[in-house]
Design a protein around this nucleic acid. Structure first.
Lengths: 123, 123
DNA sequence: TGCGAAACTGGCCGGGTGGCCAGGACTTCC
DNA sequence: GGAAGTCCTGGCCACCCGGCCAGTTTCGCA
């Protein structure tokens, strides 16, 4: 009977505010039947708290950039995006360039990751 | 100063699994310095758990593939990944190829998007 | 009416990417 | 002891990507 009679709940922390993270970790560390996840560990649930001051950036993306970004997140190539939006590949590259600039990304993969992180797009 | 010397942490719950939500609520209800948010109340942090039955697919990725995947999510190029892992670019491309195959992705951007969606990696 | 922002298009080019071929070394399982 | 799986490496090549240059049109705002 290797079965735990009281399966522990594993909680991951995603907290921008270090002070809050510390207090939570301290509080939750003493609760029976519950423990905090190791980095990268699969958790039953995640405690999320975005520091609102950490992202005052409603990154100003134009409508067209949002269109391109959404298709990029689908894994579409520039050619596909061009076809889908009815514009030329050159224009797509133009918008992608602006996206990389505004999102401070090194490539399209990075751009999608950044955008997802700051909630600009939903994966 | 009307400030409490120990301000309570207010936690909101966003849990799909009712059983897990119950257990968490029971556990956290007894922790001093912490309380659960009333519906609609502004919380310090939110506990999130998506329904695990929504993703029955434990995609079998090898450790090395996970390494490569994590670096891909950082926007690293094959060359950077190779340097970081101490292997050749050819090997990186090999692992990326396996990743694209297993994740059913058309490219590296699509791969990290898929991986993030099904919780294989955390953005 | 002029001016800037946004959107769009083109050519060019170095480097990155992904798919294909081939191979070897290692551990684990039957 | 052989088979399977993982990890690693190499070459080759078509294509894609991102950055550079240049230009046009359209729109709203001062």
């Amino acid at each position: 009977m290797s079965e735990d009679k009281t399966p522990q709940i594993v909680l991951a922390l995603e907290i921008d505010d270090p002070a809050l993270a510390d207090r939570l970790a301290a509080l939750l560390g003493n609760v029976a039947g519950l423990r905090l996840a190791a980095p990268g560990e699969q958790a039953s649930a995640t405690i999320v708290a975005r520091d609102p001051r950490a992202m005052p950036d409603d990154i100003a993306l134009t409508q067209r950039e949002l269109d391109v970004l959404a298709l990029m997140a689908e894994g579409a190539s520039n050619k596909m995006i061009a076809r889908r939006l009815g514009i030329s590949v050159h224009t797509v590259k133009f918008h992608v360039g602006s996206l990389l600039d505004k999102l401070d990304a090194t490539g399209r993969t990075d751009a999608v990751a950044h955008a997802a992180r700051r909630g600009v797009i939903e994966l």
